[in-house]
Design a protein around this nucleic acid. Structure first.
Lengths: 213, 213
DNA sequence: GCTTATTTCAAATTATCATTTGAAATAAGC
DNA sequence: GCTTATTTCAAATGATAATTTGAAATAAGC
């Protein structure tokens, strides 16, 4: 048999593992299936990665690295642009990142939150916390100095939810090919525009209301 | 040993199973642990329910029935009330329902979407589809006759996301007791009010924009 | 109290997987 | 070409957990 360049099998295992973990979750994904799809022997996982757990962690980290490279958190909008534009950049980048079916990290992170294996805890914080801080700062700026911290928190979670939840549901719908759960968001950019408009209107309403109820 | 009334063990198993399935997910929950917590013998699950799968389905249905009884979909607001008030009713009821830690059905449904066992597919549709229709109708009414179906869809998914996603995250934070993921929503009613205001402002902005981009 | 239908129990059985093993095949350095 | 370090392979091993079994205990009807 011809030999591929060194490390080719390892990379293929990493990619295939991401797919299988997304389809089945950590526990229901079997080493046997991953190896079969990667056209590798059953012992390839343990040889290359040491264990199924280590493969899971490496697959996530690999996917996460690629993901942030393709979709920077600020969406490529300059720090000096108006706050509205920076919000548009952040949200659009986030939405596109989740929509991109090559990116597995965000979806795996969702599974991990709902159904934790505990294997990604530390590593996921390095993703979520800085992302949250950046949005919080932006929302604080848009709400103005009068806003309470609770108003900032509530707005931030509302806005991020409008991005994350629909896109995750969308991927679920695509995965199952379920006709009762139609893939509603055809044009990701149009949806991102909708979210930005909705979010800015909401922020504005909270700001007008003021901090005293 | 004293005997309890007939069916007591079965009910206890049902309740305990819900807890364990929420904590661990279907696959990681073991029959052994469920029986131990219910102070029942290892064979109790198979005796009473036939299989772990059947127990899972019955536990969900049991929880769902109780859930809808406690939190009707319209939130108890009259059909003749203004649309804004009906929206407030729907969203507040939904938020409270997810927040209530006695209710397991919604959280199990989330796990099931992200990480499907396939065991609840049909049964979950009976929950989600009518709920969605009711919100769609209300949003359509609030957006007015000019609105496109896409605008209605986008607004509905945005609004439901603002309710579901934060509350699910909140329950996850409580489950793990994670200090990096603080339970942010202390006062559920205040949060519901925030979401209603945010949603109405968003709808209004979309309506003012009109259907032509 | 006696009989019968339920319910509980501990141990045995099966099934599914992750992991290990040791031999065989292959590439790379010399 | 020879040697050594990697990599692949099929089969064996071990661990975990669902399910089955058959006997024992218990409640309920009479």
């Amino acid at each position: 048999m011809k030999r591929k360049r060194s490390g080719a099998k390892k990379e293929k295992l990493l990619a295939v593992a991401g797919d299988v973990f997304i389809e089945k979750g950590f526990r229901d994904a079997t080493v046997a299936e991953i190896c079969a799809r990667a056209e590798a022997n059953i012992s390839a996982v343990n040889y290359h990665f040491g264990s199924k757990e280590a493969l899971y962690q490496e697959a996530w980290r690999h996917s996460f690295t690629e993901s942030l490279k393709a979709y920077p958190m600020d969406g490529g909008v300059s720090k000096t642009a108006p706050a509205e534009e920076r919000l548009r950049g952040q949200l659009t980048s986030l939405i596109q990142r989740i929509a991109d079916e090559n990116n597995k990290d965000f979806f795996i992170a969702q599974m991990e939150m709902v159904n934790p294996t505990g294997l990604l805890q530390e590593v996921m914080k390095s993703e979520l916390i800085p992302m949250r801080q950046q949005t919080l700062a932006l929302v604080r700026e848009l709400l103005g100095p009068e806003a309470t911290e609770q108003q900032v928190d509530y707005c931030e979670v509302s806005i991020i939810s409008m991005c994350v939840h629909p896109m995750v549901m969308q991927r679920i719908a695509k995965r199952t090919g379920d006709k009762d759960m139609p893939a509603m968001i055809g044009d990701v950019t149009a949806f991102a525009d909708h979210v930005v408009m909705f979010a800015l209107a909401g922020i504005d309403a909270i700001r007008r209301k003021g901090s005293k109820p």
